[in-house]
């Protein structure tokens, strides 16, 4: 258990460093939903930078898995849960202009009140949902 949160801290510092590299190097905010959402709905500019970023984001974990560092996603196998969950995440992050990386990592670190409020809403709604799914639905 302690080993797991040490890896959490190490991985967290890597995520923050990635956000700092993108900010200082390109002036862009490392928000996953903003980066991929702008690409999907056509509102995003600077598409070659976005593509390079996505290539690294998807390619690096693939390389690590090939190299023997495997992580199980342990995701549910209920299709309706995956579809509803995905739709909620996609629609919600675009309405709110950000997710855990944009509002959480990049927003809260500059003391953005919107970032704090969004993160409180994420964790509050997430906790209520997890409890409801486990206790209410027994899944």
């Amino acid at each position: 258990m302690p080993v797991e949160w040490i890896w959490g801290l190490v991985g967290g510092v890597m995520i923050g460093t990635a956000a700092a590299v993108l900010l200082l190097g390109t002036g862009r905010i490392m928000g996953a939903s903003g980066i991929v959402g702008g690409f999907v709905d056509g509102t995003g500019q600077d598409r070659s930078t976005t593509l390079s970023f996505l290539f690294g984001l998807i390619g690096m974990p693939a390389l690590m898995t090939l190299g023997g560092w495997e992580v199980a996603t342990n995701a549910t196998s209920l299709p309706w849960l995956l579809i509803i969950g995905g739709l909620c995440v996609g629609i919600g992050t675009r309405f709110a202009n950000g997710c855990t990386s944009g509002h959480g990592v990049c927003g809260m670190s500059r003391l953005s009140m919107r970032g704090f409020m969004a993160t409180v809403a994420h964790i509050g709604a997430g906790a209520a949902t997890v409890t409801f799914v486990r206790v209410g639905l027994g899944l």
């Binding site: 995701a75 549910t76 849960l81 995956l82 509803i84 969950g85 995905g86 739709l87 909620c88 995440v89 996609g90 629609i91 919600g92 992050t93 675009r94 309405f95 709110a96 202009n97 997710c99 855990t100 509002h103 409020m117 969004a118 993160t119 809403a121 994420h122 964790i123 509050g124 709604a125 997430g126 906790a127 209520a128 949902t129 997890v130 799914v133």
Partner: peptide, 13 residues
Amino acid sequence: TGSILFGMGWGLV
């Protein structure tokens, strides 16, 4: 509302 919706999907999956 968007952040709450996101949180629900985050919790579901």
